[in-house]
Design a protein around this nucleic acid. Structure first.
Lengths: 228, 228
DNA sequence: CGTAGAGTTGACTTTTGTCAAAATCCGTGG
DNA sequence: CCACGGATTTTGACAAAAGTCAACTCTACG
């Protein structure tokens, strides 16, 4: 079975039509012989778990369509959203360490189409494709910097600023629609989990921001815009 | 000059006598031809900056002796300690991303002897030595997991627990002396910066813990033991 | 001795989270 | 079309947690 996949390697090209595919971003599109990633498509409904914290690592996913969150549990009813992922992003790669279990969960926020990449296969690819390994190393280094910045913010930044930050990050990540809203539908609860605070606090802060003219809100779940 | 270093590569062996050298831990000791790391020793006095957040990345360091902290500024008078480093650890590697500046600072807590590794040289080594790249990638992946766990704790864990956590981590990292104290001298201020809280809070929590018999303290700067 | 600096303590303030009630929205079935 | 039940949103009151500030103490060192 693994062998069967390796045969794919010999096919050559990485036939990806995603503009922002993780692997293509790495400029591996033309010659990446090891991974023909878009073979094992999987569908996930809104709200469905893609992979679960604490479960055995089977592999990772390239998101082909839809939006997902990567989150870490705290107790029974709290979580921290570590990052969001959309078309072209990979998730589940945090299982790559020596650990056998996912340190985080992945959940679809909108219906997700993703391509599963078997862990063993991916590891084998890394052994063969050094440029991929190198780029992945850089990718982790960047994520680590991000993570540590956010950690410092958690420790020292007041809630209000963290919420603003969260909104900005989200808008930056998902882009802006023609009418000036962030191009995503997201609950206040998720914003709270991303900013590391509570639903109510997000609610209040966002009210303030609207009054101050710093953001606009539309709909019950909504788009956001941070005005400059 | 760079070429000169590459000549070293041909010498073969990595002649390191450190038990816990980062590169040796990677099992690269026998054949790592690319890096003869212990050539450019540098000394840093207690309290001295080894590298500075915001400055151009020149390279990284392998600590040969002493203890250092890696920290990130917040405002003028606050910081978060991201990790501690001792003999055999590398620091400054967070500059490896595409950024040109260090995202963190490194400061000697005790007199440090470290080996400087030029960034360009290291990058070249990565291009040549794939196993090194692979191990470094894994290393970053592990650190990322750590970082995200700590981030979640910052967001949800009460201070008291964060302080206990910090103490445990420190003791685990630096080991225990014969009389049962953590094998490091560290100020409460640094513990606070590591736990993401204030000096006074650490002070109070540690008092509690002593009363509860959970830790012992010795000296003004001190060793700690977390009893089980 | 005297002074600087760190350690210690207590009182107080602010921030943020918690809880519960009231208001609103929404779908469903009569 | 309307009434109802449940869920979600909004609001306010309150409590708890943690940070701030300032005073006091102790020690090391000249």
């Amino acid at each position: 079975m693994l062998k069967g996949r390796f045969d794919l390697m010999k096919k050559g090209k990485h036939n990806c039509d995603l503009k922002s595919c993780f692997f293509c971003k790495l400029s591996l599109k033309e010659w990446l012989p090891a991974i023909d990633v878009h073979r094992q498509m999987q569908q996930f409904k809104k709200g469905e778990l893609i992979f679960t914290e604490g479960e055995e690592v089977k592999g990772m996913y390239v998101i082909y369509d839809g939006i997902a969150k990567v989150h870490k549990k705290w107790g029974d009813d709290k979580e921290l959203i570590v990052r969001f992922a959309q078309k072209g992003d990979i998730i589940g790669h945090r299982g790559l360490g020596n650990d056998i279990v996912y340190p985080v969960s992945g959940t679809a926020l909108e219906a997700v189409t993703a391509c599963f990449i078997d862990l063993q296969f991916f590891k084998s690819s890394l052994k063969v494709n050094h440029e991929l390994t190198y780029q992945l190393m850089l990718f982790f280094a960047e994520e680590l910097q991000e993570s540590e910045k956010k950690m410092r913010n958690m420790a020292h930044m007041p809630v209000r600023d963290r919420v603003i930050n969260a909104l900005e990050k989200i808008q930056e990540k998902f882009g802006t629609t023609d009418d000036g809203f962030a191009n995503i539908t997201i609950t206040k609860q998720d914003i709270a989990n991303f900013a590391g605070t509570t639903y109510e606090t997000v609610f209040r802060v966002m009210n303030e921001l609207v009054e101050e003219g710093m953001i606009k809100v539309s709909g019950k779940t909504f788009g956001i815009i941070v005005l400059r």
